[in-house]
């Protein structure tokens, strides 16, 4: 087991592991909603639209996290606002806005000098998290998990039957806005781990893998969190041993977990006695 524990002799690796696990769990649990409500595209868009916020914060010497958060919150509100009206289809509007915002970010990047910092934005740098970053990440994890717990029955109901929610006076659009807000928070921390381009993998892949293995909603959340923790650890160790990008390693570990879940689900289906109904 030395190969597994050795890398974590270093403080920066311990910080990185803690950050990656917290971020992974937050994104995976929220991701179960993202996958079930078919919001994967929204998550991807939100990650990409944070780029101009990150670059501007970098240029002006502000906190990158706050810059990214500001851009993500603006995106969340914009998406909620756009989806109220039906003239432009929601995915079309998101497609137009997010590519535009990302292009602004790329243009701003080309005016900024150091590409090294900016490559961290695109591909993440979990090895560089500071103690301050860790506090922020832990705070986001607490807020997201607590909110999901407090509003579980409302988020669940508006996910499968917004009509019934409206009939009993619960506004589905309000719950959607809440979910978009949580998504903005999770995305901003996800960027620290795996960067703008790969953040969506943390939201979608563990949740999708869990979805292959269980049809119970709470168990899906738990399983996604466990898978994400394992993948964050495996990915970090692999990146240390192979001297490869930590973000890409974590994402590939998630992809492998998804493939494995697919195989397990397939095999399980073959050996389970047929469902004869009632």
């Amino acid at each position: 087991m030395g190969w597994l524990t050795d890398p974590f002799r270093y403080a920066f690796m311990q910080h990185a592991l803690l950050a990656a696990v917290l971020i992974g769990v937050t994104c995976a649990v929220l991701g179960v909603y993202v996958v079930q409500r078919r919001m994967a595209f929204v998550g991807d868009a939100m990650a990409h639209t944070t780029l101009p916020g990150l670059v501007i914060a970098h240029l002006w010497g502000w906190s990158l996290s706050l810059g990214g958060l500001a851009a993500a919150v603006v995106t969340a509100v914009a998406i909620a606002w756009v989806s109220r009206r039906q003239q432009v289809k929601e995915d079309t509007a998101i497609g137009v806005v997010f590519t535009g915002m990302f292009a602004v970010g790329v243009l701003l990047m080309s005016r900024a000098g150091s590409f090294r910092d900016l490559s961290h934005m695109l591909f993440g740098n979990v090895l560089g998290v500071t103690t301050q970053d860790l506090y922020l990440i832990a705070g986001v994890t607490a807020v997201v998990l607590l909110t999901l717990w407090l509003f579980h029955k409302e988020l669940e109901l508006t996910s499968y039957d917004p009509t019934h929610a409206e009939v009993i006076g619960l506004r589905a659009s309000l719950m959607r806005l809440l979910l978009l807000g949580l998504l903005a928070l999770a995305v901003v921390t996800g960027i620290q781990a795996v960067g703008v381009i790969l953040t969506n993998a943390l939201l979608v892949t563990p949740a999708a893998a869990a979805g292959l293995l269980t049809t119970s909603f709470p168990r899906r959340m738990l399983l996604a969190a466990v898978l994400s923790t394992v993948c964050a650890t495996v990915g970090l160790v692999a990146s240390y041993l192979l001297k490869a990008s930590s973000g890409a390693s974590i994402v590939l570990a998630c992809t492998a977990a998804f493939a494995l879940a697919g195989v397990v689900a397939q095999v399980g289906r073959r050996f389970r006695p047929p469902d004869l109904g009632d």
């Binding site: 079930q36 499968y160 009509t163 019934h164 979805g211």
Partner: peptide, 23 residues
């Protein structure tokens, strides 16, 4: 809307996402 609990509405089946993982 003055007395939500007093009124129940049964929607048509198509309005619901039946793939949602709840029993």
């Amino acid at each position: 809307g003055a007395c939500h609990h007093r009124v129940a509405y049964l929607p048509q089946r198509g309005d619901i996402d039946w793939t949602f993982p709840i029993p």
